[in-house]
């Protein structure tokens, strides 16, 4: 098996912009970054760490302060050349201007059409494929500005797919979406990377989703430093935790999520198992208790979970209480 070709490579890249003659540096000199076919890269980082700036710089929308971005196959970074290599889904709102979903997606064929923008059979076939891949066939005659956020994001993805480029970059595609839509979109992108062999780069705040779908994570710290690697490596070597380090927020390596309320509370002994144990533990943590699983003299309460197929109960003992409850809400109420 040969080595995958590299679709985009940076060296010594530094992002930022010029404003009124001043250089405003957003990131320090970044390590060499690479995009490869079929790989999904998630660009993570706290707000203000420069994710969008890096994405726009890589996409050629703004010049780099220093360093080079090499896209094999093109020499000068002319917009017309880049347009056949990199397609974008941005956070810019699409304003209503009478465009239908179909014609908006057809605009993706812009780099390939003649001076009047007339589509030929190939163009039409690619547009149809993009509409099918994103599953928005039913929306094609709607006006673009009447779509919901989730539909709109799929439409913009279809437009980028219609542009038929080896690299696809998305700036916070899951913002404004509800949880099922976020998961569906991430799953779709993951599948597209595999099927189309596109290199997909997306910036996101969805740490847990990114951890599940990303082949590589680029993690930008607030100071503009960038760590890269497989998501699991970044979790294990603590980089993840360090990048998002805040008071009261802790990265739970076992669950792969950030948890709040890290301050130790009153200890509670919880016995039982299964899914009920997991959710009871979460509820107790939220209520500022520390859950222990081995008996010790200083525990405040002992909670026994009894899982029946029909009915689950929690037996609460301690502090002068000895009673059975049938919902977590009742249990927490009694412990307050």
């Amino acid at each position: 098996m040969g080595i995958d070709p590299i679709l985009l490579r940076t060296s010594g890249l530094q992002t930022g912009y010029h404003s009124g003659g001043k250089r405003i540096v957003v990131s320090g000199e970044l390590p060499g970054l690479e995009l490869q076919p079929g790989r999904l890269v998630c660009l993570l980082g706290p707000n203000g760490s420069g994710k969008s700036t890096l994405l726009r710089t890589l996409a050629g929308l703004q010049p780099a302060l220093n360093g080079t971005i090499d896209v094999p196959g093109i020499e000068a970074h002319k917009p017309s050349e880049l347009a056949r290599k990199i397609s974008l889904v941005l956070t810019d709102r699409i304003r209503g201007n009478n465009l239908t979903v179909q014609s908006l997606i057809e605009l993706g064929r812009y780099p390939y059409t003649g001076w009047l923008g007339v589509l030929d059979e190939t163009d039409k076939a690619v547009v149809e494929w993009a509409i099918g891949a994103t599953g928005i066939g039913a929306l094609r005659d709607r006006k673009a500005h009447t779509l919901s956020d989730g539909e709109s994001q799929k439409m913009m993805l279809a437009r980028a797919l219609a542009q038929d480029t080896p690299i696809l970059m998305l700036d916070e595609p899951t913002a404004h979406l509800d949880l099922p839509s976020r998961i569906k979109l991430m799953r779709l992108l993951h599948r597209l990377a595999g099927q189309t062999r596109k290199a997909i780069l997306l910036s996101t705040h969805e740490l847990d989703l990114a951890l599940q779908v990303a082949d590589t994570v680029w993690l930008l710290e607030a100071g503009g430093r960038l760590h890269q690697g497989a998501p699991e490596d970044l979790v294990l070597n603590g980089v993840f935790e360090a990048a998002f380090a805040e008071e009261d927020i802790v990265f739970d390596k076992e669950a792969g999520v950030f948890v709040i309320h890290a301050a130790p509370g009153k200890p509670v002994l919880l016995t039982g198992g299964g899914i009920t144990f997991f959710w009871t533990q979460r509820a107790l943590r939220r209520a500022d208790f520390t859950v222990v699983t081995t008996p010790s003299p200083d525990v405040l309460y002992h909670i026994r979970i009894t899982d029946h197929p029909t009915r689950t109960s929690w037996l609460l003992e301690g502090e002068g209480v000895n009673r059975e409850y049938h919902s977590i809400a009742e249990l927490l109420q009694a412990m307050r």
Partner: peptide
């Protein structure tokens, strides 16, 4: 119609 950023990204 899609704004300057998209226009530039399309060439």
């Amino acid at each position: 119609l899609l704004g300057e950023h998209y226009a530039r990204s399309m060439g």
